[in-house]
């Protein structure tokens, strides 16, 4: 029983456990008096622990310090950029050669949408790298002060996933060299499955990379001025991500209506919109926009609250 309770308490963030963990487990012991943990308790604690994690991460509630809340808002935008990259990879595959194969009458809107998506994703990526360059000095100071032990596991995990992804890419490139375009695009099931596995590993690598950056920045001291710049960059990234997602969805919608044959063999708008690659790309893009909204919303709310309390 005690072990079940201890496992339950681990759902809470470490700082919360340090403050309330002991009394919480004693209260649960008293409440259960030898009985078992019920589904009602699991559900209640899961909801409360998630709330505490969001609160401690600065993503919920008004109690988080302004600096913590701004930092977490900016880091949430960074996650949205990672999902945007993954969604863009799917989109690029979807839109491969569309400029030469789409019917002339349906070309205008997708061409503009594609160009806008390209520019928006590239701009977001440049801004993210600019943000990374700006924190380099602070991060190296953090590493010199023993920060490596904090992020070591995360870095190794990311490096392992990155290594797997690179090896997979080399194998796929050599393999693809011996295949016809039709075999590369679906008729060779084994190649298709391997490609999908590689895509999944690469997506995980992108997310692990961003997670490592998040852990590093979370533990790095940033000056108020640098934090302000990073937050402004995050707002700019969020704007680019929103534009990119809108452009991707416009592209999919306009192609599904104007030339659905490009997205599926049945050549109907419904079939095009419900085909697996379209659903997968749209889902990731929507996830990116949800995270963008969460992160940007957090930044805006915190900024307004800080201004209000100064006034």
């Amino acid at each position: 029983m005690r072990r079940d309770i201890e496992r339950l308490i681990r759902w809470y963030p470490a700082a919360w456990r340090a403050r309330y963990g002991d009394e919480f487990s004693t209260m649960l012991d008293d409440e259960l008096s030898g009985g078992r943990l019920t589904w009602h308790i699991y559900r209640d604690v899961a909801r409360a622990a998630l709330g505490e994690r969001l609160r401690h991460g600065g993503l919920a509630g008004d109690s988080a310090q302004t600096e913590v809340a701004l930092r977490s808002g900016a880091l949430t935008v960074l996650y949205s950029w990672a999902f945007l990259l993954i969604g863009t990879a799917g989109f690029t595959k979807l839109a491969e050669h569309f400029a030469t194969t789409i019917s002339p009458h349906a070309r205008a809107v997708p061409t503009i949408a594609y160009r806008i998506a390209e520019i928006a994703v590239a701009s977001a990526t440049v801004l993210v790298f600019l943000g990374a360059v700006l924190v380099t000095t602070s991060v190296s100071r953090f590493l010199h002060r023993g920060g490596w032990s904090v992020i070591r596991r995360s870095v190794w995990r990311t490096a392992l996933a990155g290594g797997l992804s690179s090896v997979g890419l080399l194998v796929l490139a050599r393999w693809a060299h011996h295949l016809t375009p039709a075999a590369r695009n679906g008729t060779n099931a084994l190649y298709g499955a391997t490609f999908l596995t590689w895509a999944a590993v690469t997506a995980v690598t992108v997310l692990l990379t961003v997670d490592t950056v998040r852990r590093t920045i979370d533990a790095t001291e940033l000056s108020p001025r640098l934090l302000t710049i990073e937050v402004r960059l995050a707002v700019a990234v969020a704007t680019c991500a929103s534009v990119a997602v809108a452009a991707i969805i416009t592209w999919i919608g306009s192609v599904a209506i104007g030339d659905p044959a490009l997205l599926n063999t049945h050549a109907s708008t419904e079939a095009a919109l419900t085909s697996m690659p379209v659903v997968a790309t749209t889902s990731v893009a929507i996830l990116a926009i949800v995270l963008t909204t969460l992160g940007e919303g957090r930044i805006v709310r915190t900024t307004l609250r800080a201004r209000h309390s100064r006034a």
Partner: peptide, 15 residues
């Protein structure tokens, strides 16, 4: 009250 709800409210009231 569930235990999570109770301690969530205790933490907010204390804050």
């Amino acid at each position: 009250l569930g235990p999570g709800t109770l301690y969530g409210a205790i933490a907010r009231l204390e804050e």
